[in-house]
């Protein structure tokens, strides 16, 4: 084949308009990130899987409203995930879960069991945070994101993020104080 002279521009469109291809690409590119966040917003891996599925099903139903581009797709999915979690949280009143009961178990269990139970208790304490606050806390504490990056992802102001971080830490400190060691 003789190569004709070519320009050096490469006009690139976002993902094609084929619905299934777009949805599949969306899933393949973002599944892990979305699962990681989902897992950190839920009490169990099963709940996290359901949350991931609900998020992508929402994307499947409203594919035309999902923006193009990696960062914008991710932000859209994260916001949808957090909103679904907020709806679930409101309905389920997760706040009444089990921190006091687990505290009793720690005293009587062996060291290994106690460590596992303590981990679970810390994780359960997060259930008492409103999901958006929890999302902000885990993105900052566990994913290492800065407040401006979180604000951009969630579409809120940086000040709002800082406020949720401060309130989230305060709430967690209050719940977890007995396990933080002296002087904290």
């Amino acid at each position: 084949m003789s190569a004709a002279p070519v320009s050096v521009a490469l006009p690139v469109e976002a993902a094609g308009d084929d619905r299934e291809a777009r949805l599949a690409a969306l899933f393949d590119l973002h599944e892990e990130r979305i699962y990681r966040l989902a897992r950190r917003l839920t009490a169990s891996a099963d709940e996290a899987r359901d949350l991931v599925q609900d998020t992508f099903v929402k994307a499947a139903r409203a594919l035309k409203s999902v923006p193009h581009g990696f960062a914008r797709e991710q932000a859209w999915l994260v916001r949808v995930l957090v909103n679904i979690r907020r709806d679930q949280w409101r309905k389920a009143a997760v706040r009444q879960r089990s921190a006091p009961a687990l505290r009793g178990e720690v005293a009587s269990a062996s060291d290994v069991e106690a460590a596992v139970i303590a981990k679970r208790m810390v994780w359960t304490a997060l259930d008492q945070l409103e999901p958006r606050r929890r999302a902000i806390v885990v993105m900052h504490e566990l994913e290492g994101m800065t407040p401006p990056a979180i604000a951009a992802l969630l579409g809120v102001r940086v000040m709002t993020v800082r406020w949720h971080l401060s309130m989230g830490r305060r709430d967690l400190r209050r719940i977890l104080e007995p396990h933080m060691g002296d002087g904290v």
Partner: peptide
């Protein structure tokens, strides 16, 4: 002495699951 950040990192299920 541990703070909230330490406790969260230790309890993060993605650390062991």
């Amino acid at each position: 002495m541990r703070n909230v950040s330490d406790l969260l990192r230790e309890a993060d299920p993605l650390g062991y699951e």
